[in-house]
Every structure is written in C-alpha cells, then in structure tokens.
Amino acid sequence: MSEAAVQVVNFRKRYGPVVAVDNISFEVGRGEIFGLLGPNGAGKTSTLEALEGLRSADGGTLRVMGVDPTREARKLRDIIGVQLQTSGLPGSMTVREAMRFFCAYHRAPERVDLLHRLGLGEKMSAQYATLSTGQQRRLSLALAVAHNPPVVFLDEPTAGLDVATRIDLHEMMRELRASGTTIVLATHDMAEAEKMCDRVAILLRGRIAAIGTPRELTATGSGFTKVSVRTENGSLTRSDAAFPGVARKTVQEDYVVYFTTSVGTTLSAILAHIEAHGDPLIDLRVERPTLEERFLEITNGGGAR
C-alpha cells in the first residue's frame, strides 16, 4: 500500500464543454491536515466528490488509502468519513436515530459521546428538520467521524458555527490528526486553513495555482513583511528618509506602514531614525503576509502553475 493517504494523479473532470478540473496532481500524507482552497468554481468540490466516490473522473488516477474510489466503492465506505457541504438527512430522522442508523451501516458501535462532545446532547430526540444549520453541520461531522475512518473529508466544516463550537471543532480536528487520521479540508476560511492545515493547495480555474505549507506559500508571495510604527511626535510621517529594504510606505491613521523585504535592517534603520529625532516609540508591529493576502494575490493575479 502507498504511503500517501490520498493520491491524485493527473485528475481531470469536465461537465460538457466546461473543464472543471484540469490535470491536477497532489498527495496527502497520512495523519496530515490538507486544505483545498480556491474561489467558487475552482474545482474543489469536484475533486473532493471524486475522491469520495460521488463523481467519476474523466482522466487520471485517484486513490484513497490505496483504494480506487470509483471501482472499489464498497471498500471506500469504511475508510472515509465525509461531511458534505450540503448534506441531507431525512427530515424526520432524530439525532440519535441518525447516529444509530449510520453506525449500523458501518458496522461500528454507536458514538453517543460524540454527540455530547459536539453540543448535541440535548438534541438527541430532535428531528433533523428542526435543527439549526450549525446543529445540522455538527451532526454531519459527528456522523463523518463516528466509525473512526482513517481519512476524513470536510467541506466547509465551520461555516455557520459559533465561535465556541468552532474552537471545539478545531480541537477535535487536532485530536483526529494526533490519532493518525488524515483530514482533507475544503474551506473559504483562510485563517482556519492557516491555523489548522499542515499543507494547502490553492485551486484556480481547475488547476493548482500553489501548493505547500501555509508558511511556504506566504513566503513565496511578494515577500513583503509589514512593519507598522507609531511614534509620539510623528517624525516618520514627515520624513522622506529611504530605509533599506523598504519597497513601499503608507500612512494608516497614526501608523506609518513599511513593506519591506529585509525586516532586520529596516527595523534597525527606523529605530535609529526615531532615536535621532528624539521621537519616543509608542507601538511597533511586524506582520508577515497572511495566507489570505497570498490567496488574494494568486486569485487576483491568476497564473496557475
């Protein structure tokens, strides 16, 4: 069996004349949290659904724990857990019944503890149709992981969740990773991807525009680090001094913001400047580019790899 939990090689998917996914390849290691990012229509859902066995591929090879999702559907069911973005359960099915129903089909013991853990303990007898969107998503997540699958696909898992439940969910994802579960996560939430994912792939128009760890991706962007400085007398605002490494300077409220490729030398020069002008420092912030900024840079600039 391959070392990778998920393998996608030259995967292609088209709908009539529209090419939804164009020859993409990537691997997800075991125990990894892998993020699929991209604007709507980038091919994320097509890729996920092909891996889940819900769509067939028009070309290429897909494997989940060595299993072909199209040809070995029965084997696939027990090794994956899926939280669909738009999942449905019969409206009259209660929370407890849903857990019992799906665990029975997976030949796994019921996991009522998961329902309590995800805040559904008091909703055991509530019918699916009466649950809020957040509760439906939590139930869907509980059902996805109840049979302890080695690979879990989560499509927008935290959309519509309150902050506390989101934190709980992230904690649960970390626990799953710690227990060796591989998670493939499709999300629009860049902060979530940056915080949770070991690696991410940014899809754009059916192609992989960038792939790597969040740190690698942000480092391969424009490369600018943002240095924001606020001083008591505003000496930097009035100054025309050209600090080393600085490509651009803007003023945002009381802060002077420098975009630099050389943080150390820029900082030294700024500090020397304000000291020389006798201008006391009030606040200094150094911010690396975020994944969201890199994502916007890629999606706005285009250029699939």
Partner: peptide, 20 residues
C-alpha cells in the same frame, strides 16, 4: 414523494457515502 425528496435534497448522497 419521499424518494424524490431524498434524491433532490442530498439524502441519498449521504446514504451512498455511508454505504447504504
């Protein structure tokens, strides 16, 4: 009707993924 609704509302997708 429940069969049509199950198909159109994604219930059968959930069922398929879970081996029903």
């Amino acid at each position: 009707n429940p069969l049509v609704e199950g198909r159109e509302n994604g219930v059968f997708r959930s069922f398929k993924i879970n081996g029903v």
